[in-house]
Amino acid sequence: MSIKNLVARQKDLFSIIIFLAAFLAIWELFFNLEIWPKVSFPAPYQVLESFKNQIEDGSLPSNILVSLWRLFLGFLISITIGISVGLLMVKFPIFGKTLNSFAVGLQSFPSIAWIPFAILFIGINDSAILFVVVMSSVFSVMISTYSGMRNISPLYLRAAKNMGAKGLNLVAYVMIPAATPSIIVGLKQAWSFAWHALIGAEMLITTLVGLGHILSVGREFLLMDQIIATMIVIFTIGMIFDKLVFFKIEEKIRKKWGLSEQTM
């Protein structure tokens, strides 16, 4: 990284810190004006206190771990099913075309609307949460795999076939890598859908652990400080994955494919 980039980064960091400080100051100010009762509007230090308590009793780390575990598991299942079905859709065009129209509809289907179905179909347990997570993310993977495969430059396919690639070799060494930029976009979207669905499902399918569950508990016991602390955790996790993990991967792939002029 060049010095210029480093300076630019420090500037970015500086403005973020200024923004956060201003935000906290306004928050504190409103708290002191006592417009709302303290129960519905805690001070920043109360939220910090709640963080401290939750970390000290070990509940926050374990809830984060449980939620992330569910998220990873659901995401993994979505990738596996989504990519496999996406490949089958390419292999069998009529099936692909039909399923694609359904998948597009189901992709925009609100994840929360799956919850009553999941509770009656599976029960109030981890599997039901997983089911909701998978149902809300699998179609993004499926659609992006399907469209990514179909939009591969014919030149790559001709060159590959000309060099003797066929069957599974063609799929594994040419088609999947060639469709990767499009699949990554789908994965990123699937990840964020899975994350939304997970918190919703944890709130409504009560399994006693998970970040969503903590939110529900906070609501029932009027623990606004705990609710805000959890919201901050949810925000941070979402941001870390979106900005650090997926953005980096996407950027790297775009660069490699010559899709981005920008050099890091």
């Binding site: 030149l155 060159a159 590959a160 000309n162 003797g164 690639a165 060494y173 494919w257």
Partner: peptide, 30 residues
């Protein structure tokens, strides 16, 4: 089509996901 008659295309049909050496090895790998 087959590797006894190999085509060099007008635009680059090289595979961007592979390094130069892996591009050159591609047909041998197949």
């Amino acid at each position: 089509t087959g590797p006894d008659r190999l085509m060099v295309f007008q635009e680059s049909a090289l595979f961007p996901w592979l390094k130069v050496i892996d591009n050159v090895e591609f047909g041998l790998k197949m």
